[in-house]
Design a protein around this nucleic acid. Structure first.
Lengths: 157, 157
DNA sequence: TTGTGTGCAAAAGCTTTGCATGTTG
DNA sequence: CAACATGCAAAGCTTTTGCACACAA
């Protein structure tokens, strides 16, 4: 689904240990417990390449014979969003999708309305819009989401 | 909730007759029926000023003693999206929101993560991003959604 | 008159919550 | 061992669907 082009810079290898430590520190700082489930979910996510939703994550872990509950999956996704290890998206449907974000350059999405394909891209002008509008409207802009919806010119494959 | 600044150009008065005719034509062109419910919903929407969701619209019509069903509300919202009389949004929640769009300049949204306030803005650079990326990635970009999330600098009022 | 549109209620899909049990610190 | 996290199932919310009846064309 998600594709990279010259405009998407994926990171040099990010060591999972590094990610794990960030999460671990976050848990400590917030007096939360380091449970095996939380780390298993983090690992599952960082083994994925694509955008995913909570249910898909849950199902994949179940079929891998890992015993988790939906409640824990949702709970952990929330924690991971809070420490910026994943980001939340809604690509025009009432379904929350996630993607891992540590070490990845900020990017936006182009979504094919026909086949659902999601392409990532970067454009520096979005940063300019954020600072211009923040200033003009007296807002501290924390983050943004830009989705372009369209159709693959070469047909959907 | 929704506010306009110098960067948001709201239309000169749009006559509701004009809007109604657009809808009417759309229905005819697609061999759909001109039912009183459909026009009542359109009118209800064009009397509103804000972003709204399907349930709020439904409830408001019910309390105004207009007999409609949720099914019809959802059905009609779909039709109105199709003929560009309203646009669909998701401001970071699993709840579809709508706003009337005929005669309104294309704009994007700044959402306060604390108080939920939605401010509209226009920035021409978004058009440039759309054409650049469409070309580069072989996509016909049909529409987009840009949401900036942040906090009111002056506190939320 | 014919078939599309409607209302109502039930079902579906995603997410959250309550409660008893398990486990971390 | 006390508080927090988990699993499970039930409940909550938004949206969709099925079906009998109504009504636009």
């Amino acid at each position: 689904m998600s594709t990279s082009g010259s405009q998407v810079s994926h990171p040099g290898k990010v060591s999972f240990d590094e990610v794990k430590e960030i999460f671990s520190n976050h848990l400590t700082e917030h007096n939360l417990r380091r449970t095996p489930e939380r780390f298993a979910i983090l690992e599952e996510i960082y083994n994925r390449t694509d955008h995913f939703d909570a249910e898909a994550l849950y199902i994949h872990m179940k079929t891998s014979n890992y015993r988790v509950s939906r409640a824990t999956v949702y709970n952990t996704l929330e924690l991971l969003v809070n420490c910026d290890l994943i980001t939340r998206h809604q690509f025009g449907k009432n379904l929350t999708q996630y993607e891992k974000s540590y070490g990845f350059k900020q990017h936006d999405h182009l979504i094919c309305v026909e086949c659902g394909k999601v392409i990532e891209f970067c454009d520096p002008r979005i940063q300019q819009i954020k600072s211009t509008m923040g200033e003009l409207l007296h807002f501290d802009v924390l983050y943004h989401e830009l989705n372009l919806f369209g159709r693959c010119k070469d047909g959907c494959k």
